[in-house]
C-alpha cells in the first residue's frame, strides 16, 4: 500500500495558453499526430470591448473512482496504489469501452499500436522520482504535481488556501486534477 496519493493542480492564474504542456507531452510520450493526452482549450467570452479569453488545460484526471477501470474487460486499465490509472500495453485489446466510459474524453486509440492510451501523469518519470514532463516544462509554473496526502506539499497547500474546482465532479469519478481560477464557461462546448 503506497502512502502517496498524487494529484495535479492547474493554477490558471498562471496559465498563458501557450500549449507547451500539450507539445511537451507529445515529445515525452511519443504521441502520434491527431491524438492527444492533454490539450489546452481556448474559450472567448463576452463582447467587445470587454471580451476576454480563458484557457483550460485538460488531461486525464487519474480518478479516484475511474469509470474506465470499471468497464475495461481485460483489466488492462488498472489503478496503481498511488492512485494513477495506467494501461497495460500488452494486455489492452483496443475495444474502446474505456473511451466510451470516461466522462472526460481523454483516452484515444494509438493509430499505430491499436491500443488505448492516455495521460498517466508520466508514471515512469514519477517512478524515477521525476515530475511529469508537462509540469517540468510549463514556462510559468502553472502545473503543480504532488502528493495530496502530504499536508506540506505545495499542491496540498494551494488546494487548501485557494478555492479550487474540478471538472465534472457530478460524474462521481472523484477526479484528481484541480484548478484554481476555473471559469465555468470554459466547460461549455459552444
Amino acid at each position: 500500500m503506497s502512502s502517496e496519493r498524487y494529484g495535479i493542480l492547474f493554477d490558471l492564474r498562471r496559465c498563458t495558453g501557450c500549449q507547451t504542456c500539450q507539445v511537451s507531452c507529445k515529445s515525452e510520450n511519443n504521441v502520434p499526430l491527431g491524438v492527444w493526452r492533454s490539450w489546452v482549450k481556448q474559450i472567448e467570452k463576452g463582447r467587445f470591448p470587454s471580451a476576454t479569453k480563458s484557457f483550460l488545460p485538460v488531461m486525464c484526471n487519474n480518478c479516484e473512482r475511474p469509470a474506465c477501470v470499471w468497464v475495461c474487460p481485460t483489466k488492462a486499465s488498472t489503478r496503481r496504489p498511488d492512485g494513477i490509472v495506467i494501461i497495460d500495453a500488452h494486455r489492452c485489446i483496443g475495444c474502446r469501452h474505456c473511451m466510451a466510459a470516461c466522462p472526460y474524453g481523454v483516452r484515444y486509440i494509438n493509430p499505430f499500436l491499436g491500443i488505448a492510451q492516455k495521460c498517466d501523469w508520466c508514471s515512469k518519470r514519477i517512478d524515477a522520482g521525476l515530475v511529469p514532463a508537462c509540469v517540468r516544462d510549463c514556462p510559468t509554473g502553472a502545473i503543480i504535481f504532488g502528493d495530496l496526502r502530504d499536508p506540506q506539499s505545495e499542491i496540498s497547500r494551494l488546494i487548501s488556501e485557494f478555492p479550487v474546482n474540478r471538472l465534472k465532479v457530478d460524474m462521481g469519478t472523484e477526479p484528481r486534477v484541480f484548478y484554481i481560477g476555473l471559469d465555468e464557461y470554459a466547460l461549455l462546448e459552444k
Partner: peptide, 18 residues
C-alpha cells in the same frame, strides 16, 4: 478492435464489472 489477435485476453483476464 485495435488488437483483434488479442481477443483471447477476454477469457483470461476477466473483469466482472465490465
Amino acid at each position: 478492435a485495435g488488437r483483434p489477435a488479442r481477443a483471447w485476453h477476454l477469457f483470461v483476464y476477466i473483469n466482472w464489472t465490465s
